[in-house]
Design a protein around this nucleic acid. Structure first.
Lengths: 187, 187
DNA sequence: TCAAGTAGCGTCAGTCACTGACATATGCGG
DNA sequence: CCGCATATGTCAGTGACTGACGCTACTTGA
């Protein structure tokens, strides 16, 4: 068996995704994942802190890119426009990854335990974005609220993009932010 | 030991909250919770499906009350005003229960595993609220977006209420929705 | 009042996620 | 070829959670 480390990590992720799809998350043991990857159960837990985390690896990249995009955005934007600008800068991370991410999203949607983790990751990203907003002088509560609202809108756009691939993610994103503005408008 | 069932359930919740605060969630075993409640570990799992759920009992009530409040709100309100109206109708569920709600929210905020469950409950409630909005004729995407945004705002108000009890939850709620309006305003 | 049914509980054995301690193997620079 | 760091294997253990079975208190109906 290769001794690379990063290679083993990739094999574990692949084996886990396969088994979660074949038998379901609950009927898959960590020992089985490790076995399919040609490794030991103990090694699985050296690469991933728990059975769920094996499917959540790109999250750190997305968060870092978003934080950077917020930090580097033009200075004259107000929070929600700033967030829209930042989301448009990172949407390629999703669009480039679509064929690989689709089975993963299916498994997550079908497994409560994985959906919980997914929500936690989303909250973590929103928190990081709020921090980036604060760095730009946005007041604490406004920053938290804007980050959560912005992420919810982004998430809505991503979901619409999965359901309807005929339009680009960018188009869905603009549509979602337009919906958001319309919601907040007081007639 | 009393044989009531509902009484045992309450003792388990109380014991769990106390122990999670004293030792932390991770250093508390389900056997300890049961022992403090004068019960057996097996009985704990007859009342609650897992170690986290013992702190999430009122969620079903809150969800049902929110859905009802949305359904019964005046007919001429915009989605966000409608949600604010509904939240004000159910905030007494938190204010009346503050001695239990406050330490509970503190423990949840301090424990990643409980935060995950909290986020899952929030998503479930938001989904139900979105359904109630749809029943009132709000378009599907707007309903989902409004429910998530509204809940995020409500949650922010509840957090502020915990951090600063000098003002009522209602005041914090109005403040949070005012912040939301300000965020969406385009100058 | 008592027999029978039922709901809540206890006990036991077992699976599986996860962890610490220690041993072993692999690939590196010297 | 030799130490050394890193990746992995082995073992024993804890604790969450489950199924099966038996016990006990409370209720119900004759």
């Amino acid at each position: 068996m290769p001794r690379s480390g990063a290679e083993a990590r990739r094999r574990l992720q692949q084996a886990a995704l396969e088994l979660y799809r074949e038998r379901g998350f609950d009927r898959t043991t960590t020992a089985e994942i490790a076995a399919r990857a040609g490794l030991n159960e103990r090694t699985f837990f050296r690469h991933f802190p728990d059975k769920r985390e094996v499917l959540f690896d790109g999250e750190a990249d997305l968060r870092a890119s978003l934080v950077q995009a917020v930090a580097e955005a033009p200075g004259d934007l107000q929070p929600l426009d700033l967030l829209l600008h930042a989301f448009r800068k990172v949407e390629h991370l999703l669009e480039d990854n679509r064929p690989f991410a689709e089975p993963r999203l299916e498994v997550i949607a079908a497994t409560p335990a994985l959906r919980e983790r997914d929500l936690a990751k989303a909250a973590s990203i929103a928190e990081a974005v709020a921090g980036a907003l604060r760095q730009r002088g946005v007041a604490d509560r406004s920053a938290r609220l804007a980050a959560q609202i912005g992420w919810a809108t982004f998430h809505q756009a991503a979901q619409a993009w999965i359901d309807d691939p005929s339009q680009s993610l960018d188009a869905h994103l603009l549509q979602a932010f337009s919906d958001l503005r319309a919601l907040c408008r007081t007639p």
